[in-house]
């Protein structure tokens, strides 16, 4: 496949999950879920609490290993890969319960994200030759640039734990972007945000997409999902019950039943 075909979104999908099943003892959290994400898309993943959305994310990012089924990123299998290797391949994520490096500065949090794309080792660190210095400078510049993009430029020196909630979510996005992902997986990025913050987040996610990063997000804010996503997949009890354009999914009887109970449809 040529790079241009990739950019057009045709051909091989960026992420392809086939019949992913995840069992915890007797509990089947995911049951043969298939999902594809094309290059340049924004795909939403919705479903009632406990439907298995985060479990699916964890299966993609190497935190869990699926009991059955396969996950491919750009045609490369992710089976058995540890999270750091998945990040190196270009899949970065944020966490539902924010997991920042609380006692590091905002800037340092983003700089950690550059780790996977830089190489200075112990010797480089101690001797700090011209190459290491140049690398450090570029890490710092890129991180500051990313902070500006998510609107945290003025808070670079604060501790991550002292940021307001919404800013912490945006810092997690900046940190994930620092790893230069091809696919950015966001677990409830708008949780706990007010309307203004959510609107700003929507703008941010759109600019991220414009810069060539494909997005996969879990979110409960239905309006945000309908406005933002090209495609929405719905999970219920570990099964995918719908997948398609937002308007179509919204009208799907199975989806309405999952959310409102039998008889509502």
């Amino acid at each position: 496949m040529t790079p241009s075909a990739e950019r057009d979104g045709g051909g091989e999908p960026l992420l392809a999950a086939r019949a992913v099943t995840k069992r915890f003892g007797g509990l089947t959290a995911l049951s043969e879920v298939s999902l594809t994400v094309q290059v340049g898309e924004i795909v939403g993943l919705i479903g009632p609490n406990g439907a298995g959305k985060t479990t699916l994310f964890n299966c993609f990012t190497g935190l869990y290993h699926p009991s059955a089924g396969t996950v491919h990123l750009e045609g490369r299998p992710l089976a058995g890969l540890k999270p750091h290797a998945v990040a190196a391949l270009g899949l970065a994520r944020t966490f539902q319960n924010i997991r920042l490096f609380a006692n590091m500065s905002v800037l340092e949090n983003v700089m950690v994200g550059r780790h996977v794309r830089t190489r200075a080792g112990v010797l480089g660190a101690v001797l700090r030759g011209p190459r290491t210095r140049a690398e450090e400078r570029s890490i710092r510049e890129r991180s500051l640039d990313l902070l500006d993009r998510v609107g945290l430029g003025g808070r670079a020196d604060q501790l991550a734990r002292h940021l307001p909630y919404g800013d912490q979510r945006r810092l997690e996005i900046a940190r994930a972007l620092a790893t230069e992902p091809k696919l950015l997986a966001l677990d409830e990025p708008a949780a706990g945000m007010n309307h203004t913050e959510t609107a700003a987040l929507k703008g941010l996610l759109e600019t991220i997409r414009e810069r060539g990063v494909t997005l996969l997000l879990i979110e409960h804010d239905v309006r945000l999902m309908m406005d933002l996503c090209d495609r929405v997949a719905v999970l219920d009890y570990g099964r995918k019950i719908a997948d398609g354009p937002p308007e179509q999914v919204q009208r799907d009887p199975a989806v309405i039943e999952a959310y409102l109970g039998a008889g509502a449809a």
Binding site: L63, H84, A87, A88, A92, R99, F101, G113, H115
Partner: peptide, 9 residues
């Protein structure tokens, strides 16, 4: 966990 997810081996 977050460190690993950010690509740190």
């Amino acid at each position: 966990v977050a460190a690993e997810a950010m690509g740190i081996h």
